[in-house]
Design a binder for these strands. Structure first.
Lengths: 195, 195
DNA sequence: ACCTGAACACCGTTCAAGT
DNA sequence: ACCTGAACACCGTTCAAGT
C-alpha cells in the first residue's frame, strides 16, 4: 500500500502522543510505518519539514473559525483554543515552538492574523497589532511549554513546586493573558491622549 | 593539564559563538578540548546539565545588580540586559529557552525574582507578581529567539520580510514590553477598584 | 513515481581499565 | 581523582538501483 503524507503525519502524531518528542525520529517513524527511512525523504525534504507538518496537524483544531465577539473576548477564545490544542498532544508546545521558530507554520500564520485583526479592532494600527499578536503567541507558547514540562516532571514522580499553588493552571493562564489584553487597552488609551 | 568545569563551559560557549547550537555536541566539545568524550561525564552528569551551565554563563551579564529605580524602569532595564545577553551569543535565546524549559537555571531564577520584586513594588501580591514575571520572561525569550532566527536567515542570504519594517528591533522590543508593563499597571488599577 | 539497500558521517552515554 | 578505550545503541540524510 502506498505511503501518503497524511498517514506519515498521523503516525508521527501517534508516536508523539505515546512516547514524546524525543522518540519522534525518522528511523522510528519509518519502522512503525513498515518502510525504509529513505522512503520518508520522497515525501518530505527534511525532518524539519515533517515536524512542521505535524505542528500544523496539532494546530488545526485551533484554526477553526471563531464566533463574532468583542476583540478582548476573541483574543481569549483564540488563545484558549491554542493552549488546548498544544496540551492535547505530548510535548505539543515544544514541537510547535520549534516549528514556529524554524520554518513558518501556515496554521500559526492564520492564528497570528486572527489575533492581529482583534488588535486592529481594538484600535491599534496594523504594525502595532502584528507585534501585539506575536507577543500574545510568545506568552501562550511559553506558558504552555512550561505547564507541559511541569506535567511531565509530575508524571515522572518528581514534584516541582508551583509558584502559586492556590490557583489552577487555566486561571493562571487567563490572568497572564489579561495582562496583555489590559496592556493593549492601555496602549490605545495612551496613544489617543497623544493625538 | 586538568580539565575544569569553567574551561569546559568556556569552550562550549566558543563553539556556540563560532558554529551555533547544532554543532555544540559532546563529542565535538571533547575533541576541541583534546580529551575523550567520556571525560566530560566526569564533570557533568549529562549534556543537559552542561547546557544548563552554558546557559548560566550566557545569562551572567544579565544578573548584575540593577540600580535603584521605579518598578517600570527596573523591568525595562532587566529585560534589556536579558535580551542583550541572549543576542551576544549565537543561538543564545534558543539555548536559554531549552535550559529554562528543562532543568532550572539558577541565573533565570534570579532574573525572575528581580522582575517579581518589581511587580510587587508596583502593587501586585506575590502570586500575581510571580506570574507577571514569568509572562515577561516568556515574551523576552520568544521575541529574542524570533529576532535571532531572522538574523540567521538574513545572514544566510534568505530575506524574510519583517512584519513592520519601519521600526528597528530594539524599538519593537520596547513596544511589546510596554504592553506588559501597561498591563501590570491596569491590572493593579482594576484590582484596586474591586476593594 | 515510489521505494529499498546500503552506506556516510555522525550522535549521547556507559564503564572497565589505566594512571 | 580523573581520564582513556572501546563499545552500545542509536541518529539524519543521500543515492544508485530496483519495481
Amino acid at each position: 500500500m502506498q505511503l501518503h503524507k497524511h498517514d506519515v503525519v498521523a503516525k508521527a502524531a501517534s508516536i508523539l502522543d505515546n512516547y514524546g518528542i524525543a522518540d519522534l525520529t525518522m528511523r522510528r517513524l519509518a519502522r512503525e510505518l513498515d518502510v525504509t527511512p529513505g522512503a520518508l525523504y520522497w515525501h518530505f525534504a527534511s525532518k524539519q519539514e515533517l515536524l512542521g507538518a505535524v505542528a500544523d496537524h496539532v494546530l488545526a483544531p485551533a484554526c477553526a473559525d471563531q464566533p463574532a465577539a468583542g476583540w478582548r473576548h476573541r483574543i481569549e477564545i483564540v488563545c484558549r483554543a491554542l493552549r488546548d490544542a498544544l496540551l492535547s498532544h505530548t510535548d505539543g508546545a515544544e514541537l510547535v515552538s520549534a516549528s514556529v521558530a524554524a520554518g513558518r507554520s501556515e496554521a500559526m500564520a492564520l492564528i497570528l492574523s486572527q489575533l492581529g485583526a482583534a488588535a486592529v479592532e481594538a484600535g491599534m494600527d496594523p504594525g502595532q497589532a502584528a507585534l501585539a499578536a506575536r507577543s500574545i503567541v510568545y506568552y501562550v507558547l511559553g506558558f504552555t511549554a512550561d505547564e507541559q514540562s511541569r506535567l511531565q516532571w509530575d508524571a515522572a514522580g518528581v514534584d516541582v513546586p508551583e509558584p502559586s499553588p492556590t490557583e489552577n493552571p487555566s486561571t493562571r493562564f487567563a490572568f497572564g493573558l489579561q495582562l496583555l489584553t489590559y496592556g493593549i487597552g492601555a496602549e490605545i488609551d495612551a496613544g489617543a491622549r497623544l493625538r
